[in-house]
Design a protein around this nucleic acid. Structure first.
Lengths: 227, 227, 227, 227
DNA sequence: TATGAATGAGACTTCATTCAT
DNA sequence: AATGAATGAAGTCTCATTCAT
């Protein structure tokens, strides 16, 4: 699934370039492709540095070393280049984990949590910008909602499976549990890396603790005395 | 504590009115006080309806039925009235619960979760605006961080107490557990009421489920088979 | 003449108060008179401190400890109170000197120069404001022009007299000489006290030097070798 | 010195254009240069016609036939374009005269006086605006003070030289004499051309009379009976 | 008379966007 | 394709002035 996801992103990215190309008959030459990439890179840098709102078209072009007139050969608005930046960044937050399919539940949860924490840590800048944009852009909000639903679906399936396997607390509503525990990890990751609130915490420790909370919450037996 | 907190808020509110008063010798009469309140109410309404960024000074004054020049008799900037709006709204997210001191752990957790969900539900509009503002205003971000820390302190103490009482999993780091579980409830509440993602869920059910997750996560014995 | 001048000023001042009184039926009671005077004093202070342009009605009222609504009970505009301030200040720049009528020419010139320097020194603040106002207010400019003409007339008569007495250079045009030498003293006085350019100079020395230049310029014999 | 002075002015002017260029990547093309010049000319015209204070950015742009947004491509404030206008105007008030070095004292004084009167006459408009600005702008005031000091230095040296040559009254303080006589000519020139007070006077006559006063004041022998 | 609240004309400034070269 | 000059909509803010109490 992660691979499929990544490939879909790449395809979308390519589509965007081509869409831009079609828009103004620009972007098909090597030079045009280079300018497009320069703008995209510059935009990412400036968005992260200044935030979406405080970023002006001029800033992006300055960063790219281009005249601001050039911008409109490739994009029609700041929202548009932002969308392209998003598509070019492989956030990969949807991947639940990289653990082997046959690993036990606890190991898979641990792997997923580590993966999520690392993904947020490695993309903290752009994630912060996304958080900014969703507050006022309904379309971005919808995109995020879709992603969250997709994520919740996956988690829900897992919980349901664990319950069917008899290793998770049967009193839990699988969807609520999935949303809540997913939200817990997401919130902590953001607290740590995006909002910069927890420099004192070590990723390994946090991953272990979140896993313990998660496993406990689901009622998965850990083979150790809980108190 | 909640009462002390509310009174502090009221005092700050009063101070703000007086600060406005001092600025231009305005706000000391009954009429002035009424105008200040009208602006504050109008601002809250418009902020919630339009978002902070899309709110223009003129919108607030239109909503209040006042000339835009009047605004500057009471405030110097949109940020300032927003701060006053915040102070005038008794968010009360810091109160852990209203349960009696001698209630058992599970009942207290349940009460706290319900309280938090209700508080977010009842103030979803302004909380959404706060989320918007913290993405670009460092001062607002700092204020929120302070509140989160305060909240985390309280939760940490609780977890520590439960561990000392021998009813909570001793392997947990009390601060991480407090932050994570607090973040879980906060994230879910925002998902439900602020971002409008979960109309299908019933508050009672959610409160019960979150409590179960929380209690399980801490390893507090529920007297029922967990699976 | 100086006395006549001063009395005329006082009369004008009184007239202004009465005019204000008539304007709004205000200013005839003791309280009204006191308020008028408070505004006038405050205006002078603020004009000198801030300059005419940077002075706001509010500043004057703040200085006077009055509400700014009160201002319009006595004046209709900043220009008007400025005019009243001018009338209330006895600038007395027109007085040529205080020397006895039968003093010799050099003594009278010396006395006039000293008097002028002292008058400018003692009223430097308001003179600076006047300089500011004449740059954009045609009426103030006309008032100043009238005063200059009056002054030039007096000087011209003196020069003509000295020529008739055979003690002044007959090649001089009396009016040009009067204007030029009067302008010289005026310029120096402003340089010293209004524009703050000559803290290093002593008034006595300057008066003596200006007198020497003046006397030399007119060709009045000083009884000493000139080189 | 005058040439050096003029060249310095030109260099500053060029620097200003370049500074504007750097500000927004504007002003490097021929068209941009032309627009800059158009704004500068328009500003001079409007400043002289309306005065500095009554000039609005819009007025300048209207006069130049440009949109008001264009102004901010080249300048950030009215003060800034005013400074550039000053730099572009070659006032040349500092040049003492154009007389040959070996001319006699009286001829040089006469040449200097004529030159000064002509310079003020030819730049009366902008000089009036400068007078206006110095009354409220400390920086402009400082600039003028520097120019006056430079001028006074030159005059002082002259007087000192005449005294050393034995042709000027030894009782005179050279600096005071320089300041006073320079101020006399400046005041008269302003009276004639800037404040519009002396339409009846002929420049030739005035130059001759001021020279006579100046020469007399310094005690320079004129070879004619002084009375 | 004094107060202080309300008003709105009027100026400034930014920056996304268009356009001619 | 790239440039950079020109534009003007849209918002901000000030403060003199009016007015009801």
């Amino acid at each position: 699934m992660p691979n499929a996801s990544r490939e879909r992103q790449r395809d979308e990215h390519r589509d965007n370039v081509d869409a831009a190309a079609k828009r103004r008959g620009i972007g098909r030459t090597v030079r045009g492709r280079r300018t497009y990439d320069a703008l995209l890179n510059a935009a990412r840098v400036v968005f992260v540095r200044e935030g979406f709102l405080h970023t002006r078209i001029t800033d992006i072009c300055d960063e790219a070393g281009l005249s601001h007139g050039t911008f409109y050969n490739y994009f029609t608005a700041k929202e548009e280049i932002f969308q392209d930046v998003l598509d070019s960044v492989e956030l990969d937050l949807l991947t639940l984990d990289g653990a082997p399919e046959d690993a036990n539940a606890i190991d898979r949860i641990r792997a997923a949590n580590r993966h999520y924490l690392e993904a947020v840590r490695d993309n903290a800048g752009i994630i912060g910008v996304i958080q900014e944009v969703v507050t006022f852009d309904p379309e971005a909000r919808a995109t995020r909602a879709r992603r969250e639903d997709e994520f919740a679906d996956a988690l829900e399936r897992r919980v349901r499976q664990y319950q069917a396997d008899g290793i998770a607390d049967g009193r839990l509503d699988p969807r609520i549990a999935g949303l809540a525990l997913g939200g817990m990890v997401d919130a902590f990751a953001n607290y740590l890396y995006v909002n910069g609130g927890g420099e004192q915490f070590d990723l390994d420790v946090v991953a272990e603790q979140l896993t313990l909370l998660w496993v406990n919450a689901l009622g998965i037996p850990t083979g150790e005395p809980s108190s």
